[in-house]
Simulated scan of single mutants.
Amino acid sequence: MTRNESNLDRIIRIVLAVVFFVVAATVADNQVVQIGGIVLGAILLITAAVGFCPLYRLFGFSTCPTNS
């Protein structure tokens, strides 16, 4: 797995993951919405931690300036 996310992309994913977790824990009153928020937040957090997005690879897209 080569890195295909820039640092800005990773920071945005972490912020969005936190937003999804907070919405799932506080605002969402439907259990499906809560589970969806947790799952989406977890996916964003994992891809940010690893620096690799499988969808970017699938579509041949990269935000990483060096592709190291």
Rank of each mutant, 00 (worst) to 15 (best):
L45Q: 09
V39T: 01
T47A: 04
L16W: 09
L44S: 13
G60C: 06
I35F: 09
V39S: 04
L16Q: 04
Q34N: 10
F20K: 01
A42W: 09
F52Y: 06
A48Q: 07
L55Y: 03
R10N: 08
T63K: 02
T63Y: 01
V32R: 13
V39G: 00
P54Y: 01
F52I: 05
C53D: 01
A42R: 11
F59L: 14
A24R: 03
V50E: 00
A42I: 09
T47K: 08
V23W: 08
P54K: 03
Q31W: 13
V22W: 13
R10E: 10
C64Q: 07
A24S: 07
F59R: 00
L55C: 02
T66L: 15
V27E: 02
G60E: 01
T47H: 04
I11H: 02
T47F: 00
V39R: 00
A17Q: 05
S62M: 04
L58Y: 03
V15G: 06
L55Q: 04
T66E: 15
C53G: 03
A48W: 12
A49T: 05
F61S: 01
P54E: 01
R57T: 06
I35H: 08
I38V: 15
A25H: 13
A49K: 01
T2L: 14
T26Q: 04
L8Q: 13
I38D: 00
D9S: 14
T66R: 14
V33R: 08
G41T: 07
G36A: 08
F20S: 11
F61R: 07
P54I: 06
N7M: 10
N7G: 08
N4Q: 01
D9V: 07
D29R: 06
V39N: 00
Y56P: 00
A24T: 02
I11P: 00
G41N: 11
Y56L: 00
G36N: 05
V50T: 08
I12M: 12
S62C: 04
G36I: 04
V39Y: 05
R10C: 11
L58H: 03
N67I: 10
L44R: 05
A28H: 05
R3N: 08
F21K: 14
L44F: 15
I14Y: 08
